[in-house]
């Protein structure tokens, strides 16, 4: 008793401080994740609850085979979108932050703010804007095509190019986080490194290649993972740009989870597809963790 009181006196406040966060965390993250895993092996209905499937992994089979295997197409679409946008976001972020780095403080701040401004608006509004930019009759995109003498495109209604149009809209959205983080990382590299290299006769490109790039490696990796995860989860944009789906050509993993779970009410399959997404993100995260651990800091 004595020691319990002593323990409470010593640590009681600490537990009280973390309690609210831990409670909501357990209720709204930990418990649903575990239950979701259970549901992914069950046939679940709101009236009758969950019944274990036989074979128990049936939802995972169904996840890939329902509606003629749309989910496979959805994964493929998501991976294409991801590969293009991650590469372009990191590259454009790197180029832009390298270009604004030599500028004065005020100009740097101006560009960072200009790039960041659109990022504070919701993906819904951005997606809607692009939907109308891509409008076949009066959209801005076709106006520009016409100006340079090209044929107008059916950007979002042609199944062959709809996914490409959505991807392009993300590529053309300046990767604000990358610019800010790259700028911060480049700003923290000691000036002496560059001065020493300059004395040794290294030109600006070589200094950038041999000093800047290696020293921002960990930020680059962090951003790559950040954008990979965000692109795996792409939903809002697709949902507002092509509500009809254009013959499944723009299905992504999360639009599938949404459809199966909350339009078809096939909870088990939606949960299983959610875990496929989880697995993909886990692989990327583990890769990041290993790469960062082996990283040599300066």
């Amino acid at each position: 008793m004595q020691s319990a009181r002593k323990f409470a006196k010593k640590h009681g406040w600490s537990y009280a401080f973390v309690l609210p966060s831990m409670v909501t965390f357990c209720i709204f993250v930990l418990f649903p994740v575990v239950w979701s895993l259970v549901i992914s092996f069950q046939k679940y209905s709101l009236s009758r609850g969950g019944v274990w499937l036989d074979p128990v992994y049936q939802n995972y089979v169904d996840a890939f085979t329902t509606q003629g295997g749309v989910f496979v197409t959805a994964i493929r679409n998501t991976l294409i979108y991801s590969a293009v946008t991650v590469a372009s976001n990191v590259l454009i972020g790197l180029i832009l932050s390298s270009l604004i780095q030599p500028l004065g403080f005020r100009l740097q701040s101006f560009f960072r703010a200009a790039y960041y401004l659109p990022a504070v608006t919701s993906a819904v509004v951005i997606g809607m804007t692009w939907r109308y930019i891509y409008n076949g009759q009066w959209g801005l995109a076709n106006y520009l095509l016409e100006k340079v003498g090209l044929e107008p495109l059916r950007w979002l209604s042609n199944p062959d190019i709809a996914l490409g149009s959505i991807t392009l809209s993300t590529v053309l959205t300046i990767p604000a986080t990358a610019v800010v983080l790259f700028s911060a990382a480049m700003g923290s590299i000691p000036k002496e490194y560059y001065e020493a290299a300059e004395l040794d006769g290294a030109g600006p490109i070589r200094r950038w290649w041999n000093i800047t790039l290696p020293l921002i490696k960990s930020v680059t990796l962090y951003l790559a993972v950040l954008y990979t995860i965000a692109s795996f989860e792409v939903f809002e944009k697709v949902f507002v740009m092509v509500p009809s789906g254009v013959a499944n050509s723009t299905q992504t993993i999360v639009t599938q989870v949404y459809q199966n779970g909350f339009q078809q009410f096939n909870y088990g399959v939606a949960a299983a597809q959610g875990f496929v997404l989880f697995l993909m993100i886990a692989v990327v995260s583990v890769f990041q963790f290993r790469a960062l651990r082996s990283d040599v800091e300066y």
Binding site: P32, S36, E233, V257, Y267, G274, L277, F278
Partner: peptide, 8 residues
């Protein structure tokens, strides 16, 4: 991913 917790 938050999407995993949606169903429960």
């Amino acid at each position: 991913p938050a999407q995993v917790t949606l169903v429960p």
